[in-house]
Design a binder for these strands. Structure first.
Length: 854
RNA sequence: GGGCGGCUAGCUCAGCUGGGAGAGCGCCAGCUUGACAUGCUGGAGGUCGGGGGUUCGAAACCCUCGCCGCCCACCA
């Protein structure tokens, strides 16, 4: 499929070039993993995007990283499974649909459950398609034959099986506890789904009379919750209140008798040091209540309104109740003081409603055993984190882990596979049972709760491969090799995959965890659709090409800090594509053909530039490979970029142009060898342009994507050539600099006399690159000093004294610095000899250069 | 309240185990040189957040302060 250069435009056009390749790769089956392959396997299960909308920059970044790993491993000889999928994201999706309905002036209750579900199904299908198409234009080499969705029948079976297995181990139980209640979603949510926002509220000081005389003043920001008070607590060490402990306070407005207890949790220096205890509506109070056997009063309805029958506040929304309570207290003279107070208030991560802690009967999953296994696995080094520091984030969270509230009271999600009979028995089963397991009743109703969406995500690395069935995929492709995510879901997701993987599969679900950075908007704000700071990856791809977007992603993703979005960097990589395009065009136009594309013999090369560029290629190959394997993709990208542009194009092509025009076989061979290897090295990062250029190289060619990764090239490493060429570059740059700074110096021409005999090849290259003649005797004129000789420009009788003076001054300044250092006895005594030697040489060079100029 | 990350050229960022401050973009000047003006060449621009310390030598290591960001946390 070799093509000619005649149809290569002078400018690279990503739109035109990228269009066809994805379909061709897919048609060839290059994305499809073969479970029967004898190659070593490499597995990545793409973190399933929430099916709540199209993919954003974070996804583009993350999917690119994984695709780099997948493509690299394929080339390196692995059988790669890169499995795609999407997550139903119960609570998030429900909110998206609810918002749409609200915009249409409707609620899901008005719509009805059935219509709501079909609306969701439609949404899933639309968004699913969008997501798939986005991954395609990005070039993600996903195995679409294995596309999964967390609501697929098979996946649902995995989820229910996990529930049943946990239940049978006795780890799932139902109990009333204080939970984070979202009044909007009318569901409990987990601690991790609560986000905290700063609020400016009022701290109210309220007097509670004490039986037998006296009173106690408490402070609260939520006076309405006092209606659910069942105690008052003080710190046992608080001398002010010692006398009160054991007495009883009377709850204003309600009249309830409140035991006054002593508890360490009470901070003496907050407020008055006395705390109203509301076990039904505050997590800390709940714990205090447990310790002192206080009653629990549930003073709130699921919609957040007050549940205080018999009181005037009954049924009022919280805010209204608060106003009324405060007014009543004031009227009775029990409101002692009000002061402004700033604190954090929990909001629902998905709908932003203020979370009301309340006691509710929920499904819980015991985490202690799984936590211990996960900790042990970490200790044994079974999971490697990149960057390493995130391991601590994860371990610290694990250590403080409490039981997981897995039940949700939502319309969307996996229904809890528990069936209740009229006699109060529970039957737990993956398949819907016909009869109650205990009393044989056939009147079974399924538990109304659904599971936390993260419960199903936790099973992703093996449920996607067929678990609980012992499928071939599961046997071959588990464990996965890497998982790549944003740090915000380390605890929500990564930790739970590790725990369930160990529990059900007996092995950690992946070896490497890569945590990529966050992309912020250009102004440093969070990228988000609602803020209007989001950037659509599809638009970027349209403007700059997928390759440019991917190269940018690779160059920022594993940065130690979050990066601000900077479009000029993406544009820079589009120019890089153009550079590759044109460098290839040049080589191809020089008459490269199949017979001339042999790999050069390592020891047969004569010319300095050839030896040098191949040595650089060998170094680039090592750096790119190490970058991918070490999850520092920016190092790979940088190494490939610098090799391609700053070494191959800027120097080698310039030095070899004449030989290429003359169809010199060696030059063509070196050019082809460099380009081919460069295409291989860049392919994981920039698959489209490399595949296209590869296809234009001579010879019958299979897909680059299916080709092999360059083996170690250190046979070409040539330290001597690097030294010599480096001296050559310095001299060329000196000469160019003179040309620009000396009036009358011509753009080409001039005679150089070298002090060292560098040999004819070096001299030829110098002559070519610097546009000078290398001579043994300088023509008349004022010689200008070079580090390695002198130059005389024609028509420049005398160099501009100002320029010379400036140059001398610069050199003298540096010489002074070096000499000061060398004069330092301590430096001479303690610095390593090679450092001293280098400095002495530098001093000598500087002195010589100054002499030549004077 | 704990923990983590960041503060380097006008902007966005590299600088690994301490030995002559870098890139891309932008800016200035010069190039329609037969791959590329999406280019080439030269150049200007930096008290490496502040202050201490360790060291012959610190952008890098230690301490401290200051901002910015994130994660975790049951002080009403």
């Amino acid at each position: 499929m070799s093509k000619t250069t005649s149809d290569m435009k002078t400018a690279y056009d990503p739109q035109a070039i990228e269009a066809g390749w994805y379909a061709r790769w897919e048609r060839e089956g290059l994305f499809t993993a073969d479970a029967k392959s004898t190659k070593p396997k490499y597995t990545i299960c793409l973190p399933p995007p929430n099916i709540t909308g199209e993919l954003h920059m974070g996804h583009a970044l993350n999917h690119t990283l994984q695709d780099i790993c997948a493509r690299y491993r394929r080339m390196a000889g692995y059988e790669v499974l890169f499995l795609p999928g999407t997550d139903h994201a119960a609570i998030a999706t429900q909110n998206v649909i609810e918002k749409q309905l609200a915009a249409e002036g409707m609620t899901k209750e008005q719509l009805g459950r059935e219509a709501f579900e079909s609306r969701v199904a439609e949404w899933y299908s639309d968004v699913g398609e969008t997501i798939v198409s986005q991954d395609r234009i990005l070039g993600a080499s996903l195995d679409w034959t294995r596309l999964r969705f967390t609501m697929d029948e098979r996946y649902v079976r995995s989820v229910l099986t996990a529930f049943v297995e946990f239940y049978e181990r006795g780890w799932i139980y139902r109990a009333p506890r204080i939970v984070n209640w979202c009044p909007h979603d009318r569901s409990a949510i987990s601690d991790l789904e609560v986000k905290w926002q700063e609020h400016h509220d009022t701290l109210y000081f309220i007097r509670y009379p004490v039986e037998g005389g006296g009173d106690v003043v408490i402070a609260t920001v939520r006076p309405e919750t006092m209606l659910g008070d069942t105690g008052v607590a003080v710190n046992p060490n608080d001398e002010r209140y010692q006398k009160l402990v054991g007495k009883t306070a009377i709850l204003p407005l309600v009249g309830r008798r409140l035991p006054i207890v002593a508890d360490e949790a009470v901070e003496m220096d907050f407020g008055t040091g006395a705390l109203k205890v509301t076990p039904g509506h505050d997590p800390m109070d709940y714990d205090i209540g447990q310790r002192h056997s206080l009653d629990i009063v549930n003073a709130m309805n699921p919609d957040g309104s007050m549940n205080v029958p018999g009181l005037p506040y009954d049924g009022l929304p919280g805010v209204e109740a608060r106003k009324l309570v405060v007014a009543d207290l004031k009227a009775q003279g029990l409101l002692v003081e009000e002061e402004p107070y700033t604190h954090d208030v929990g909001h629902c991560d998905r709908c932003d409603a203020i979370i009301e802690p309340l006691v509710s009967e929920q499904w819980w999953l015991r985490m202690d055993k799984m936590r211990d296994k996960a900790l042990a696995a970490s200790e044994a080094g079974k999971v490697r984190w990149h960057p390493e520091r995130y391991e601590r984030t994860y371990i610290d969270w694990l250590r403080g882990l409490r039981d997981w509230n897995i039940g949700r009271q939502l319309w969307l999600g996996h229904r809890v596979p528990v069936y209740h009979c009229p006699n109060g028995h529970k039957t737990v089963s993956v398949e819907r049972p016909r009869n109650c397991g205990e009393c044989d009743s056939s009147e079974l109703t399924q538990d109304p709760d659904v599971l936390d969406t993260w419960f199903s995500s936790a099973l992703w690395p093996f449920a996607t491969l067929g678990w609980p069935d012992e499928t071939e995929d599961l046997r071959v492709f588990y464990p996965n090799d890497m998982n790549s995510t944003a740090r915000e879901i380390i605890n929500l997701w990564v930790s739970r995959m590790i725990m369930t993987g160990l529990e059900f599969m007996g092995e950690v679900p992946f070896v490497d965890v890569a945590i990529h950075c966050q992309v912020q908007a250009a102004d440093g704000r969070r990228m988000s659709k609602s803020l209007g700071t989001g950037v659509d990856p599809r638009q970027l791809i349209q403007r700059y090409g997928a390759d440019a977007v991917r190269a940018w992603a690779a160059s920022v993703a594993m940065s130690s800090q979050d990066v601000r979005y900077d479009e000029s960097r993406i544009e820079g990589y589009r120019r890089f594509c153009n550079k590759l395009w044109n460098a290839t065009r040049l080589v191809l136009a020089s008459g490269l053909d199949g017979s001339r594309a042999e790999a050069p013999e390592p020891y047969s090369l004569e010319l300095i530039e050839d030896r040098w560029i191949l040595s650089r290629l060998a170094a680039a190959r090592t750096a790119v490979t190490e970058g991918i394997e070490g999850f520092t993709f920016q190092d790979s990208m940088w190494a490939a970029y610098a090799f391609a542009w700053n070494e191959f194009c800027d120097w080698w092509l310039e030095a070899a142009k004449d030989r290429l025009r003359a169809h010199d076989a060696t030059a063509l061979g070196v050019a082809a060898f460099c380009l081919e290897n460069l295409f291989r090295l860049l392919h994981p990062f920039m698959p489209f342009v490399t595949e296209e250029l590869w296809s234009r190289m001579p010879g019958g060619r299979d897909y680059l994507m299916r080709s092999w990764w360059p083996p170690d090239l250190s046979l070409y490493a040539d330290g001597q050539a690097e030294l010599e060429f480096s001296a050559l570059m310095d001299t060329v740059e000196e000469i160019r600099s003179y040309r620009k700074s000396i009036t009358g110096a011509p753009p080409k021409g001039g005679a150089v006399k070298l002090e060292l005999d560098r040999g004819p090849d070096w001299e030829r290259a110098l002559s070519l690159l610097a546009g000078v003649a290398v001579v043994h005797a300088l023509p008349p004129g004022k010689p200008l000093g070079l580090a390695d000789g002198s130059i005389v420009f024609p028509a420049v009788a005398a160099a501009d004294p100002a320029v010379i003076a400036k140059k001398v001054a610069e050199l003298e300044k540096e010489l002074e610095r070096v000499e000061t250092k060398l004069a330092n006895q301590e430096f001479i005594a303690k610095a390593p000899p090679d450092v001293i030697e280098k400095l002495r040489e530098r001093a000598a060079d500087l002195r010589a250069a100054i002499d030549r100029l004077k």
